[in-house]
Amino acid sequence: MEEEKTWALVSEIGGNYGYLEELVDILKQHFQLIYYKEFLQNPALHGPKIHVLFMWKYFPEAKPSLLRSLPSLKVVVSGGVGIDHLDVPFINGLGVKVANTPGVVSNSTADLAMGLLLASARKILEGHQIAVDPKTFHIPQSLMGVEVTGSTLGIIGMGEIGYKIAQRSKGFEMKILYHNRTRRSVDDETAVGASYCQSLDDLLRRSDFVVIVVKLTSDTAGLIGHRELSLMKPTATLVNVSRGQVVDQDALVQALQSGGICAAALDVTHPEPLPRDHPLLGLPNVLITPHTGINTYGTARGIVEKMLENALAAVNGLPLPNEVKLQRHNEC
């Protein structure tokens, strides 16, 4: 007789917050899954059975009311790196562990950061629209972009993702500056040709492209505001692949409208999606993608496999490979 599997709460298959079906199959090999809508039909019946909460795209939300209805819960496993959506001390206070999935998302996020930078600099989206427009019979010569090769890139937050962005930028012969709370080793800097800027202001003044790759904490919320944007070159582009709250969006709109900076390329905003009448959506020098930094099939599979690894460790009483105990105010 097959041993009964441990119960785990998940969001759904498909939909706005759901897994691809082939990813759910990975979890089903080890856990008895209950979907959130099914759970809500009878929380009192299902709650005591659940030992694992798998969060995908921040859902199901780890609200106190939900957590208190899961008396047997051992671990909350969140897909992705960011933990700003989790009250880790509160969850730990319930005797429940927390894990995320670092490392596996780094390549895809770094790839998208470079994609946004290149697409914005070379006006790829505008060029596509002209090329497919049925009214286009002549190619305009006015679609001029910004040179990427040999330009200066400033990376705010040189953790794993930031470092991978630096590795990619080296191939474009970019001069790489970075600002971090902790300076990286000389070997790390030499490998990518990066120079440390102790002052964020110095990085902003010198960079042609500024890429933000920090975790969202109380220290980094609103990190880039009116003052910081005013320090940037009027020819500079801001790229954000961290969290929307790191940038003061009203200040960004003003800088883009006034010519304070040249352009912005954003994979993150606040909220997501933006209200349909938000001024950022109507600016010609803004490129926005809908938080797709980790959206590749390989990365999604890797996230689920790492979620599974942490969950199995928790239910078997083993150390979690990626346990998050307290949110630390360090940049990525």
Rank of each mutant, 00 (worst) to 15 (best):
R301W: 01
Y58R: 14
E323Q: 15
W56P: 00
G293E: 03
I50F: 06
T235W: 06
A311H: 10
G82S: 10
V132M: 13
L27V: 12
Q29A: 14
T217A: 08
L318T: 04
V186Q: 12
D188P: 01
N16G: 12
K164G: 02
A113W: 01
F59H: 13
S69L: 06
S185Q: 12
N330Y: 13
A236S: 14
A314R: 05
L238R: 00
T235E: 08
K49E: 06
G293V: 09
R206A: 11
G18M: 13
R168K: 15
I91C: 07
A314H: 08
H291V: 00
F90V: 11
P71C: 10
L20N: 09
V210C: 01
A119N: 07
L45V: 14
H329E: 11
G225F: 11
V253W: 06
I156V: 15
K63S: 15
I34N: 09
G317T: 09
V304N: 02
G298T: 09
V88D: 04
L118W: 01
I294C: 04
E22L: 11
G259D: 13
A113N: 07
K306V: 05
T220Y: 03
L143G: 09
R184H: 07
S185F: 04
Q141C: 06
L320T: 07
I161L: 14
S151I: 13
K170Y: 09
K28Q: 11
K5S: 10
Y35H: 15
M174R: 06
G244H: 09
V88I: 14
Q32G: 02
E173I: 09
S78Q: 11
N285R: 08
E309V: 10
D87F: 09
T101E: 08
L320G: 11
H291R: 01
T289K: 02
N316F: 05
N180K: 14
N240M: 05
S11W: 01
